[in-house]
Design a protein around this nucleic acid. Sequence first.
RNA 1: GUGGGUGUAGCUCAGCUGGCAGAGCACUAGAUUGUGGUUCUAGGGGUCGCGGGUUCAAACCCCGUCACUCACCCCA
Length: 428
Amino acid sequence: MEIQSVKGTRDFYPEDMAKRNFIADLWKEVSLRNGFAEFDGPIFEYLAMYQQKSGEEISSQLFAFEDRGGRMLAIRPEITPTLARMVNQRINTLPRPIKWFSVPRLCRAERPQKGRLREFFQWNIDIIGVDDCLADAEVIFCAVDYLMQAGLTSDDVVVRISSRRLIAALLEYFGIEKEGLEKVYSALDKKSKVPAEVFEKMLAEAIGDANKRQKVLELMSVGSLTQLESFAGEDKNAKDAIEELKRLFNYLNIMGITEFCRFDISIVRGLAYYTGVVFEIYDKSEQLRAICGGGRYDNLLADFGGPKISATGMGMGDCVLGIVLEERGLFKNISEKNKIEYFVTYADEALKSEALKMVASLRRVGKRTDFSYKGGALGKQLKQASAVNAAMCIIVGDEFTQKKQIVIKNMGSGEQSSVDVSDFLGRL
RNA sequence: GUGGGUGUAGCUCAGCUGGCAGAGCACUAGAUUGUGGUUCUAGGGGUCGCGGGUUCAAACCCCGUCACUCACCCCA
């Protein structure tokens, strides 16, 4: 039986690898220019680290295994716990704010579908130790900075922003019981994904009282921050949360990315550990799941046994992003980047050694250089040069024997000229 | 966990009412021993996912099974 690749994994042939690198190289470049430092951790950790935070549901989606020493381990499904562990270990010596990024390879044993695989890469950036929502603004800016750099515009993507703190305060203000909150959250999360009737039905199951339900329905139709204030009344928690969002949007405006950003009260982001501002970035076609998601999680370090220090961050996977970039035709110039600069050919077998010397010289000064093993007719060698998409060809032939010259041929334009070998090597 | 779709050459897919296994692209070689991409010619490459059944005869019909894929659930 032929061995095939495992479900939900990908093989990266050179042309696929070029796309993957296009995505990941840009992640790194944008992280660095936004002031983030790279870190990484092990690809597997103790299983318990992922279980303590999440429970059965999530551990069933882990690739877990036992090592020879009987330790229960798991391949990392996310890097945030590792980040928390690493930061906690050095919390007293790290200068703040801590701005770190990583591009980990992650595995989750979920059922694969469009934009979701079992093995993928995810860009993570986190800012630890800043309470101000300026940090949240910077995380959003960084994500948008990347998408713009990749060639996407506000016509292509939208950042939907809300606040867990705001929702929690308003629901409490409306008098909705704490026990029912989870159900309300998951109904809100569905709002933009299901028909209005279905949404209202879900809400009815979550909230018994018709008056309260009506208030929530009205709340969900709010499209701007200013409309919100009438709902908050004199409730201090709600007013504070609105104030924070206003400041966030002000920062986003100052940073010049307002056109990408929209307040959207239906964004609640799973139910995990978010405590404040939350956001998701979507492709405007609305056909795909989120490109990116993030928000504030102020209990993160404490949850992993550290001090209570605030944190905010986001994650962007390569699957949905790759689909978007492909659809928009934004994988540009990727075949140019690593292509052969010089392909050295020889017109006569007797000149093979001279050609090889030339190859070695070019490689030693850092030029991407190749040649034909088989040699043979010059035409064959040039054909091979075309096949590997070489930019220039060097022909070692009679000119070399007679005048110590080589022919340099531009494979794009077809133009060629003879130069002295010593001049050519001297210019490199 | 639930439901749909698809499995035929390396890739994308045709294949009629059951009758010799096909095309395009890609690959290799030649036309072409000092000039590539285009073109032309030739060639290699198949357990028709797998197992069983019906039939003189199955890629095709029936039963089972596996894989992949899309959607739901979930989504750190």
